[in-house]
Design a protein around this nucleic acid. Structure first.
Lengths: 240, 240
DNA sequence: ACGCGTATGTCATGGTTGTGTCACGGCCAC
DNA sequence: GTGGCCGTGACACAACCATGACATACGCGT
């Protein structure tokens, strides 16, 4: 159950509270980074990827709302959970206006924080894994829609992919033209925890070929890169 | 990327939130018009054409439900996506009865909003006249009216759905062709607070199948997506 | 050019997990 | 109380996926 299920940025200037939260989150398996002021928070959000930011409102150097608003204006949509001082409705409204995703009023129960965090992270990772803004891929005479896991292959047959099949296709498509290490596929599709043998990956690629390649023995889209992994191309391309 | 792939009317009185949403939609290539109260919204809907209306529920001068109901009564079938505050089931039912097409509860992630918008606009432009998203749905030889919760199934039998049944149907219909996570169904129908076991969802889908599927064991409209949830299609479609 | 070692292709199989389905019990409204 | 609705648990079943075995292809060194 442990090992990294999400990277969290914790922005909190009360060091004792910060430590308590961090320890609990880490015990749940998250990777936690802590900063203690608003400017640093903004910098971290700009330059690193997080599954979630837990953002205190009262901070030195830049308050939480401003951090959030600035980040949103710059197009970052990292989920943000506010920690607001006390329950005045005013705070909560500001948090929402600023573009926050959820908020918790101090004092709060750690348990509740953990629940919110879990909800946000889970929702987010599932979305990322399966749904891009460009939900459709076409290659050769095939097409596939990641929103429905349904597609059509060159011969006109409906193709309903399973979850894993779709995810592997997605990983390959996301890096169209580049080779992708097996290792990376495993990590992206299965996560850090469970690592099935890499033969499993072969199997799924095999299935994708059977579904979408007119001649699976001479793949035109799902290429093998010996010693490395696979490479997907949108346009047909022989392996010679 | 694209130019004018859709004209969107955004009705939201919290100016910061409105600005954030508008900027993001425009970045995606939509044309956005913003109004901040219900009366103006209704006027815009009456006199202009939009691909979609994003409608906050809490508004000055006329609440979102009333706007929607009035527009529907006047025969406008512009798709409407509600932004509801996080809250009691009452909201969700009202949105459903008012004839909305989809709804998102605040706080939401901008990314999620963008995905919904893309889905609705795309569907709209594709089917257009055929299956305009309306308070009425037809699929196979079935039909159902979300305002009266009444319908008729393939064999001619009257179908009076219960509230929950209707809400689940609505959630599935709103995202016709796409898979919908159990999680999302739960959240939309029951809200964030109360979360019954996800077996409950199965049961309701089972009931919908019994009511509307000629052969419930081989569903043609209510498809299972293993590991994810369900997928509804207007046209019959076998699962292979 | 040949052969060997290693990586991948391919298939069949069992275990595991998710879902279909039903029946029961609680709750609310009438 | 009684009837409809809803949530839950149990059981069976089906889908999916991970694995191992074997066959085949590749690439390197000689």
């Amino acid at each position: 159950m442990n090992s990294t299920i999400g990277r969290i940025l914790l922005v909190e200037d009360e060091v004792n509270l910060a430590r308590g939260i961090r320890e609990n989150l880490e015990a749940e398996g998250y990777t936690v980074e802590v900063v203690t002021d608003g400017m640093s928070a903004l910098n971290s959000i700009r330059h690193k990827e997080f599954s979630l930011v837990i953002l205190d409102v009262m901070l030195p150097r830049m308050d939480g709302y401003t951090v959030c608003e600035t980040a949103r204006r710059e197009g970052r949509d990292t989920p943000i959970l506010f920690l607001t001082a006390k329950g005045g409705g005013q705070d909560r409204i500001r948090g929402l206006e600023a573009g926050g995703d959820d908020y918790l009023t101090k004092p709060f129960q750690l348990r509740e924080l953990l629940l919110r965090v879990a909800a946000i992270v889970r929702r987010r990772t599932r979305y990322d894994a399966m749904t891009a803004l460009e939900p459709m891929v076409r290659f050769g005479d095939n097409e596939f829609d990641f929103r429905s896991f349904r597609g059509r292959s060159w011969n006109g047959a409906d193709q309903l992919l399973t979850q894993k099949e779709a995810m592997i296709l997605k990983v390959l498509v996301a890096r169209e033209g580049e080779m992708v290490w097996r290792e990376e596929i495993l990590e992206k599709v299965w996560g850090d925890d469970v690592l099935p043998s890499s033969r499993t990956v072969d199997n799924f690629v095999l299935r994708l070929r059977k579904r979408f390649e007119p001649d699976p023995e001479r793949p035109a889209h799902f290429h093998t890169v010996r010693g490395i992994g696979y490479r997907f191309t949108t346009t047909a391309e022989s392996d010679q």
